[in-house]
């Protein structure tokens, strides 16, 4: 069974990846942050495969450790947070960093990469979705506040207040949240 080490500063992503790999019955020996990476910690982990984020500047640190100590020469699987499966394929081809060593079979690795890459992408998708939901909530709050201002100032009913904001947004090519924000700002300005 291949022992896997994950190096990732995004703690939640590292844990997510760890859980996913363990679910696929891989052995994950640890999850380090880049600050913790040195010859000693890599040695101590005694991993067969290392998984890192392609966009981590710390990757060069790992290069030196692997090069200077032959026993620490490990295949490094490089993952990128991308959504479409085509780029996951590309990452799988190009992603196993230059120093693939001898004692890990390609098939072993491709299994790990498949699980890891899919999970990595999934994590990004979930995070993006979460952010979108949060943004939508924020926007709705803004719109509600702006509606309240219009109702109070101009004596409009709720539907009419919303209709005016929407038509202004459409005419100006802006999002309704932007119009709402402008209304709130002007209210704050005149209130002072």
């Amino acid at each position: 069974m291949k022992r896997i080490l994950i190096i990732d500063d995004a703690r939640d992503r590292a844990l997510w990846l760890k859980a996913s790999l363990e679910l696929a019955e891989y052995v994950v020996v640890g999850a380090l942050s880049w600050d913790e990476v040195d010859e000693r910690s890599i040695q101590a982990a005694a991993a067969d495969v290392i998984i890192v984020d392609a966009n981590a500047p710390g990757r060069d640190t790992l290069e030196q450790i692997s090069l200077m100590s032959r026993t620490l020469e490990k295949p490094v699987v490089v993952l990128r947070a991308q959504k479409d499966s085509r780029s996951i394929q590309a990452a799988m081809r190009a992603g196993v960093s230059a120093y693939v060593s001898h004692d890990v079979e390609g098939e072993d690795l491709s299994g790990i990469i498949q699980v890891a890459a899919a999970r990595f992408a999934e994590h990004k998708r979930l995070r993006d979705e979460l952010r979108e939901v949060k943004d939508q909530l924020e926007e709705r709050k803004l719109v509600d506040r702006a509606k309240g201002i219009l109702i109070q100032r101009m004596g409009l009913d709720e539907a009419e207040a919303y209709r005016r904001m929407r038509s202004m947004a459409m005419n100006r090519g802006k999002r309704i949240a932007e119009i709402a924000e402008a209304i709130i700002l002007s209210e704050e300005l005149t209130a002072k």
């Binding site: 966009n55 060069d60 790992l62 290069e63 230059a98």
Partner: peptide, 15 residues
């Protein structure tokens, strides 16, 4: 780019 290892991999991978 953020790392030389990344520059190398992306050259080799054709990105």
């Amino acid at each position: 780019e953020v790392s030389w290892a990344g520059v190398r991999d992306r050259l080799i991978g054709g990105e």
